[in-house]
């Protein structure tokens, strides 16, 4: 999925403007010429300036690029271009959000197993591979963190307790 420069440019302007506004709202420190508001203000203006420069200088370049990409043919090694194919790129952040929402309730093992299964399947692995991978990888990672690094992972679900109990000498 490749967003057009126009879309990313508009996002930049929005982000920069929001940051500059947020910085403007911050209270100055009495007696100090430079307060916490200055840096976000300057940094917020930056992306807007970058976008403005992009509009002025690269316009013909963008037009040329668009014309160049309007050809009907597609290179042999180009990825498939279905309508929803590009949305696959959003799967990793979506799975991260999923982890944040459910990890405390389901525990690390089950949540990570679901994530590994979905990711490996999305990457084209057959269930014969993705299923054992989904079962073994979270247990392995859990053991590394809990036994080797002594770091508790999210949640205290039944599956996690079983792994901890089984790994006790």
């Amino acid at each position: 999925m490749r967003l057009p420069d126009r879309v990313t440019g508009l996002f930049l302007v929005g982000l920069g403007a929001a940051a500059a506004y947020g910085g403007w709202q911050l209270p100055p420190v009495p007696g100090q010429p430079v307060g916490p508001n200055v840096f976000p203000l300057v940094i917020g203006i930056g992306p807007c300036a970058v976008r403005a420069r992009d509009r002025v200088r690269d316009r013909p370049l963008l037009r040329r690029g668009r014309r160049a990409h309007s050809g009907r043919g597609r290179p042999a090694d180009a990825p498939p271009t279905g309508k929803l194919y590009g949305l696959r790129a959003l799967l990793p952040p979506a799975l991260l959000l999923f982890y944040v929402v459910v990890a405390d309730r389901l525990g690390f093992i089950i949540t990570a197993a679901l994530i590994v299964f979905v990711t490996s399947t999305a990457l084209g692995a057959r269930w014969k591979l993705s299923l054992p991978l989904a079962v073994l990888a979270p247990i392995g990672i859990h053991l590394i963190f809990s036994k080797l690094l002594r770091v508790p992972l999210a949640g205290r679900a039944a599956a996690d307790a079983v792994v901890i109990a089984c790994s006790k000498p």
């Binding site: 696959r88 790129a89 799967l91 999305a122």
Partner: peptide, 10 residues
């Protein structure tokens, strides 16, 4: 990188 790999052909 994982997001990029999602769109990489075999």
């Amino acid at each position: 990188q994982v997001m990029r790999a999602m769109l990489t052909p075999e």
